[in-house]
Design a protein around this nucleic acid. Structure first.
Lengths: 110, 110
DNA sequence: TGTCGTTATACATTCATAAACATAACGCAT
DNA sequence: ATGCGTTATGTTTATGAATGTATAACGACA
């Protein structure tokens, strides 16, 4: 049986971290700019920006260091805190994924 | 850390079973009609009907026995196959949830 | 000092999805 | 025969989220 799952971290009953933010942060790390990260995912910059803002407010964690203006117009890099966070989230998701694969073959023998 | 988790069963890359259909089937079992089941969930009947139809087509499983007309206008009851299916799905979700709760406290010590 | 690509933000528009609505058929009970 | 509440299905309308557009500020550098 094939499956798909999503796991969100919640705060005050609001989604505060999930697959979208994860991808975004990894792309920022790779590309050095939030705009380029959003573009590379086919996501509008305004949405990407809102996501970052919301998470930072909600979790009280600074995720990216912004630089406005300058040689390449500016850019963003992810913070150590963000790196730690995505490492934890990825480890969690991997662990859960493993569990599902074990179980799904136990329950659905199809 | 609080979380929310959703698991879908897939067929041909399409969502074919998840939390929505599960609730719907349980409500049909409880209330004896797809219309009432949908209403009780604040879901439109047409959507509920489409969900049932799609799953039955996709999984090649008959989920509900329909009766049109008659004493109470008709109604629907869920099949044994559907009962088996929701039992498996619920067991799987419960097992995975347990795992997440263990892990999330291991990873996010917040 | 003007240019560049970025962050930041508000606002308008588009689009996909869901809900509403409409209609037909059904069969038991009165 | 008629009415009732259901299943079945297509069509229309509404809602909300995502996207697009616009504008300002910024600062290194040529």
């Amino acid at each position: 049986m094939d499956y798909r799952f999503r796991l969100w971290l919640m705060k005050d009953n609001k989604k505060v971290f999930g697959e979208g933010p994860l991808m975004l942060l990894k792309k920022v790390e790779e590309l050095g700019s939030l705009r380029q990260a959003a573009m590379s995912m086919g996501m509008s910059y305004s949405k990407a920006w809102k996501i970052m803002k919301q998470i930072e407010e909600e979790l009280q964690i600074q995720l990216i260091n912004r630089k406005i203006g300058g040689v390449a117009g500016g850019g963003s890099t992810i913070t150590r805190e963000a790196k730690d966070f995505i490492n934890k989230y990825e480890a969690l998701v991997a662990s859960v994924n493993k569990k599902i694969e074990e179980d799904i073959n136990r329950f659905f023998v199809i």
